[in-house]
Deep mutational scan, measured.
Amino acid sequence: PAHPYDRLKTTSTDPVSDIDVTRREAYLSSEEFKEKFGMTKEAFYKLPKWKQNKFKMAVQLF
């Protein structure tokens, strides 16, 4: 299930529990994912792991 970005980011005051914290981005809706990352999930997962992590750090999901 998708969760709002505000509850997934590492600085959230009301974090979602029971998620894989190493894959926070996977819980974003497709729309919100595209808004935050500027690309689709499919394109994101084709990137090298280090680049994925760099993007995730930039949007507080790492």
Rank of each mutant, 00 (worst) to 15 (best):
P1S: 12
P1Y: 11
P1L: 12
P1F: 11
A2K: 14
A2D: 13
A2E: 15
A2V: 15
A2M: 15
A2Q: 15
H3P: 07
H3T: 05
H3D: 06
P4N: 09
P4Y: 10
P4M: 07
Y5N: 07
Y5F: 08
Y5V: 06
Y5M: 06
D6Y: 02
D6F: 01
D6R: 00
D6P: 08
D6H: 01
D6Q: 01
R7E: 07
R7N: 07
R7D: 08
R7H: 07
R7S: 04
R7A: 08
L8N: 05
L8P: 04
L8S: 01
L8H: 09
K9T: 12
K9H: 07
T10I: 13
T10C: 14
T10L: 08
T11A: 05
T11C: 15
T13E: 13
T13M: 11
T13A: 11
T13Y: 08
D14W: 11
D14M: 11
D14A: 07
D14H: 09
P15G: 07
P15Q: 06
P15F: 02
V16T: 05
V16E: 05
V16G: 03
V16Y: 06
S17C: 15
S17T: 14
S17L: 15
S17H: 14
D18S: 10
D18G: 14
D18M: 07
I19Q: 08
I19F: 05
I19C: 11
D20W: 01
D20V: 04
D20F: 02
V21K: 07
V21F: 11
V21M: 07
V21E: 12
V21N: 06
T22V: 06
R23V: 05
R23H: 10
R24G: 04
R24E: 04
R24M: 11
E25P: 03
A26R: 06
A26C: 14
A26E: 10
A26I: 09
Y27E: 02
Y27K: 05
Y27L: 04
Y27H: 07
Y27V: 04
L28M: 09
L28D: 03
L28H: 03
S29K: 03
S30C: 14
S30R: 12
S30M: 14
S30Q: 12
E31I: 08
E31S: 14
E31L: 05
E31R: 07
E31W: 11
E32L: 02
E32Y: 02
E32D: 12
F33A: 01
F33C: 04
F33E: 01
F33G: 00
F33M: 01
F33N: 00
F33P: 01
K34I: 13
K34F: 15
K34G: 12
K34D: 08
K34C: 15
K34E: 14
E35L: 10
E35W: 11
E35K: 06
E35V: 09
E35F: 10
E35I: 11
K36F: 13
K36P: 01
K36L: 15
F37H: 01
F37T: 01
F37D: 00
F37S: 01
F37R: 00
G38E: 06
G38V: 02
G38L: 09
G38S: 04
G38A: 09
G38F: 06
M39R: 01
M39D: 00
M39P: 00
M39W: 02
M39N: 00
M39V: 03
M39T: 01
M39L: 03
T40W: 04
T40M: 03
K41W: 07
K41T: 10
E42F: 07
E42Q: 11
E42A: 11
A43G: 05
A43F: 09
A43W: 04
A43E: 15
A43D: 15
F44C: 01
F44Q: 00
Y45Q: 04
Y45A: 06
Y45D: 05
Y45P: 00
Y45N: 03
K46S: 13
K46H: 13
K46R: 13
K46W: 05
K46F: 09
K46N: 12
L47E: 01
L47P: 00
L47D: 00
L47S: 01
P48L: 00
P48F: 06
P48W: 00
P48C: 03
K49C: 14
K49L: 14
K49P: 10
K49G: 08
W50M: 03
K51Q: 13
K51P: 00
K51I: 14
K51D: 10
Q52Y: 01
Q52D: 00
Q52R: 04
Q52V: 01
Q52N: 00
N53T: 12
N53I: 14
N53V: 12
K54N: 11
K54W: 14
F55A: 13
F55E: 07
K56F: 06
K56L: 07
K56G: 01
K56C: 13
K56P: 02
M57P: 00
M57A: 08
M57I: 13
M57D: 09
V59I: 12
V59Y: 13
V59P: 00
V59D: 05
V59C: 13
Q60N: 13
Q60A: 11
Q60D: 15
Q60K: 11
Q60G: 13
Q60E: 15
Q60Y: 15
L61D: 13
L61W: 13
L61N: 10
L61C: 14
L61P: 03
L61H: 12
L61E: 05
L61F: 10
F62Y: 15
F62I: 15
F62K: 14
